[in-house]
């Protein structure tokens, strides 16, 4: 394929622009990494730095020696696996029927669902609800109340709608049931969007902490983010506790600990993305269309 001069110029511009953008967006994260490796004095120095003056592991030592943190990781992984499986299953089961224009009362179902995106009973009724179902202080309180993310489900539904009806028809003629069509035809065609919604769900569960703080009472059931919040609170200067002796003051700098917790909590979730990226390849559907 021959490119015109204009196209070449655009390509050059494109590469330069994207490189700059990547540099700008990586900047805050880089700052966090620098701070996480800083000594307390360095972390508090006002100024622009591109590199830590000296490397200190104090922040990481403080975070990683916390006895609750590994437990927190475990609880978070359980939550993510369970929560994402539930969300994906429920979302697919809901999105697929709603993607069919011939589904009876489709608009009413959709309306009822969209309605919940804007109106909710609020925190206290939700808490009472979870309690009356005896879900509190269990992982179910963290995964069931957000069993479907309506927005994600609607994105999924719209993607299903864009799959040409003929593909499904041909499967139906071969005698496949609705479930078989969904599992054998529709889902394989939807891998990129399933990956996207899956990633959203994983990240949402990974980052959530407020529901944990509300519903979970035993600290050994705390998820990672809740544990990290507490580590940060612990690292705050202790001088708000009245009448402490001078020795009480924590020698760990809050800013350093805060940054270390971000790195510790973000690294694992960062590794998920490149894995998902490989499914974003143009033309997934082409092969199946031809076949």
């Amino acid at each position: 394929m021959k490119r015109t001069n204009g196209e070449k110029a655009y390509a050059v511009f494109n590469y330069i622009f994207l490189t700059l953008l990547a540099l700008i967006t990586v900047y805050p994260f880089w700052q966090v990494i620098i701070t996480s490796f800083s000594t307390a004095a360095e972390a508090n120095r006002i100024g622009f730095k591109m590199w830590p003056a000296e490397i200190s592991w104090e922040g990481y030592k403080n975070v990683l020696t916390n006895q609750n943190i590994w437990n927190g990781y475990l609880n978070t992984i359980i939550r993510v696996l369970l929560g994402t499986s539930i969300e994906m299953t429920l979302s697919i089961l809901t999105a697929y029927p709603l993607s069919k224009k011939y589904l009876p009362h489709r608009n009413i179902f959709t309306m009822l669902i969209v309605f919940t995106m804007f109106f909710s009973g609020g925190m206290i009724p939700s808490y009472l609800n979870v309690r009356s179902l005896h879900l509190d202080n269990t992982v179910w309180a963290l995964v069931l109340p957000i069993g479907i993310n309506t927005f994600n489900m609607l994105i999924l539904r719209n993607f299903f709608m864009s799959i040409p009806e003929e593909i499904e028809e041909s499967a139906k003629i071969d005698g496949a049931s609705a479930v078989q069509v969904l599992v054998q035809v529709v889902l394989p065609l939807s891998v990129p969007i399933l990956m996207t919604v899956g990633l959203w769900s994983i990240v949402a569960h990974w980052n959530a902490w407020l529901d944990c703080v509300i519903y979970i009472r035993d600290s050994n059931k705390y998820v990672l983010q809740a544990v990290l919040r507490k580590i940060i609170i612990d690292a705050a200067p202790q001088f708000d506790n009245m009448n402490t002796t001078a020795q009480d003051i924590s020698q760990i700098d809050t800013e350093v600990v805060k940054s270390a917790t971000i790195v510790v909590s973000t690294l694992p979730i960062m590794l998920v993305y490149p894995f998902i990226q490989k499914y974003f390849v143009t033309g997934v559907m082409v092969g199946s269309l031809k076949g």
Binding site: G122, P125, P145
Partner: peptide
């Protein structure tokens, strides 16, 4: 469309139980 409607049941139950049931909170 029985099959499709059956598929919809878990999702609708979810909305009923976790969204519409606590909805009375709007009265606050």
């Amino acid at each position: 469309h029985k099959a499709l409607l059956l598929m919809l049941i878990p999702g609708m139950l979810y909305y009923l139980l976790f969204h519409y049931k606590p909805m009375y909170g709007l009265l606050i």
